[in-house]
Every structure is written in C-alpha cells, then in structure tokens.
Amino acid sequence: MTGTSEGWIDLTGKLALVTGAAAGIGRASAMAMASAGAVTIVLDRDEHGAAQAANAIQAAGGRAIARQLDVTSEPAWHDLADWLEREWGRVDILVNCAGIARFDRVDEAMFETYREVFGVNVDGTLFGMTMALRFMRKTGQGAIVNISSTASLKGNPAMASYGASKAAVSHFTRSAALETNRAGLDIRINAVLPGFTDTAMAQAVHDRFDEKLGGHDKTLAIFSSGRAAQPEEIANLVLFLASERASFVSGSTISIDRAQGA
C-alpha cells in the first residue's frame, strides 16, 4: 500500500488489532493501520465482512488477517489471546472500534437495549484493553485507541444507553492511562470521540428522523456541523494516536466533530 507509510507515520513492524473492522470507522482504521505498514488483524463478528476488509487491504499491498470475534464474549477474547501468543507473541496496537447504538429513553422500558449496548460498547472495550495490556506490559510499550463518541458529552433523549456507554468508555480510557503511566510503562491509551459520521449508524438516524424533522438535510443540521464526517477522516486521528507521533499523548479524549459541540 502507498500513502502514510511513505511520509509522516510509519508503523512498519507493528502488529495492530482493530475490532469492528468489517465496516465504517473500524474498516477505515484497519485500512489506515495497514497503509502505514502495520500487520493488521481485522476483527469483527461479521466473518464475511472481516474477510472482505482484509482482502481489500491485501489488494492494496498491505498485510492483513481476518478473524471472527464477538467482543462481548470473554472466552472469545481468551481464544484470540492464545492465537496471538502462538502466532505473534505480542500486541503493539489495539483499536477498540466495535460498537452499536439503539434508540431508547430513560422513561421507557430500556433495560434490554441498555444491556445489549453496554455489552458491546463497554464490556467489549474492557475485554480488549485487558487482553492487549497483558501483552503490552511484557514489552513496556504499546498504544490503545478506544472509539467513544461526542454523544458521551451531553444527554440524548433518543439514544440514552449509547451516550452513557460511550461516557463509560471515555472514563475507563482515562483510568487505564493513569494506571500504565504510574507503573512507568510507555503504553498510551486515548479515546477518539467522533461526531456524526457517515456509517450504518448514521443511516439508522436518518431512517428514523428524516421524515419527522423535514428531510435529510434537516437531520444533518441537527446532528452534525452541516455534513457527516467520512470514516477515513476519523481514522486519520486514530492512526496518529496509534503512532509514535503521539508519543506524549495519553489519557486524552479527543472530539472530532468540526466544532459541533463548541
């Protein structure tokens, strides 16, 4: 692959894991890691989608391996760790991108959606960090990037569980970064908070609200700064945080929403 690896960021020799990598921000992040030279493990519960993403990376000249992973399953993470130990013996970069959103409200029966959303967004992120940190502590270095959301910064009467789950991701990010820093380890842990991004999740918002709000553009105006971000725009920040160019950045939660929350 050509691009970033020839310029400012070079991940040659690194092993990068990306969850939720079959589509959206996860796929774009996996492509970005590989374009910078990392061997990229493409992880998703959608086995076919993961294989397609890995094939796209390989077709562009990168190195990628697809593996099915249900991030809510602790045994599945243990199996992945065993495979990584046998095949690679290390993890240099983890991008926790797997996530879901459901429409729910606190004043309604929301516990089913709450448990589902937290299972993927929070449990999945924690399982991933715990697994990656076991490898990273051996070498004393590494980078973890968690995908949170600007929805974590304010209340949301349409997707209460989603915003709350992403707030938890941001908090666990800061806590884990303090743990590794105080242990004297060069393991950087940060969170990216995307605004409205052109993914299947955004399409679900359009499907639900366009008619109510008066059309596609009206929904965009309410949920974004006037246009949706492209997944590749979010992946650029993920790539930076995963690289040594962000060597003094840890414990940060960085919004990327074109001043929507300003």
Score class of each variant (00 low, 15 high):
Arg67Ala: 07
Arg67Phe: 07
Gln68Gly: 13
Val71Ile: 10
Thr72Asp: 00
Thr72Tyr: 00
Glu74Val: 04
Pro75Phe: 07
Pro75Ile: 09
His78Ile: 14
Asp79Val: 09
Asp79Tyr: 03
Leu80His: 11
Leu80Val: 11
Leu80Gln: 11
Asp82Cys: 13
Leu84Gly: 04
Glu85Ala: 14
Arg86Phe: 01
Arg86Gly: 08
Glu87Ile: 00
Arg90His: 03
Asp92Gly: 13
Leu94Cys: 10
Asn96Met: 12
Cys97Gly: 14
Gly99Met: 11
Gly99Val: 08
Gly99Asn: 06
Ile100Ala: 05
Ile100Trp: 01
Ala101Gln: 13
Ala101Ile: 07
Arg102Val: 00
Phe103Gly: 09
Phe103Asn: 06
Asp107Cys: 01
Asp107Met: 02
Ala109Ser: 14
Ala109Asp: 15
Phe111Asp: 12
Thr113Gly: 02
Thr113Ser: 15
Thr113Arg: 13
Thr113Pro: 06
Arg115Leu: 12
Val117Ile: 11
Phe118Cys: 12
Gly119Pro: 07
Gly119Met: 07
Val120Glu: 09
Val120Gly: 03
Asn121Val: 10
Asn121Pro: 09
Val122Trp: 05
Val122Ala: 15
Gly124Gln: 07
Gly124Val: 08
Phe127Tyr: 15
Gly128Lys: 13
Met129His: 06
Met131Val: 14
Met131Asn: 09
Ala132Ser: 05
Leu133Gln: 14
Leu133Ile: 14
Arg134Thr: 12
Phe135Arg: 08
Met136Asp: 05
Met136Leu: 08
Arg137Cys: 09
Arg137Met: 12
Lys138Leu: 15
Lys138Ser: 14
Lys138Glu: 15
Gly140Ala: 13
Gly140Tyr: 10
Gly140Lys: 11
Gln141Glu: 15
Gly142Leu: 12
Ala143Cys: 12
Ile144Tyr: 10
Ile144His: 10
Val145Met: 05
Asn146Val: 07
Asn146Cys: 10
Asn146Pro: 06
Ile147Ala: 06
Ile147Pro: 01
Ser148Gly: 14
Ser148His: 03
Ser148Val: 08
Ser148Thr: 03
Ser149Glu: 04
Ser149His: 03
Ala151Gln: 05
Ala151Val: 07
Ser152Gly: 08
Ser152Arg: 06
Ser152Phe: 04
Leu153Ser: 04
Leu153Met: 09
Lys154Phe: 10
Lys154Pro: 00
Asn156His: 06
Ala158Thr: 13
Met159Phe: 06
Met159Ile: 05
Ala160Ser: 14
Ala160Thr: 10
Ala160His: 03
Ser161Thr: 01
Ser161Ala: 14
Ser161Gln: 02
Ser161Lys: 00
Tyr162Leu: 03
Tyr162Gly: 00
Gly163Thr: 02
Ala164Trp: 00
Ala164Lys: 01
Ser165Met: 09
Lys166Met: 10
Lys166Ser: 12
Lys166Gly: 11
Lys166Leu: 12
Ala167His: 02
Val169Arg: 01
Val169Met: 03
Val169Lys: 01
Val169Asp: 01
Ser170Asp: 13
Phe172Arg: 02
Phe172Tyr: 13
Arg174Ile: 12
Arg174Gln: 15
Ser175Val: 13
Ser175Ile: 10
Ala176Gly: 02
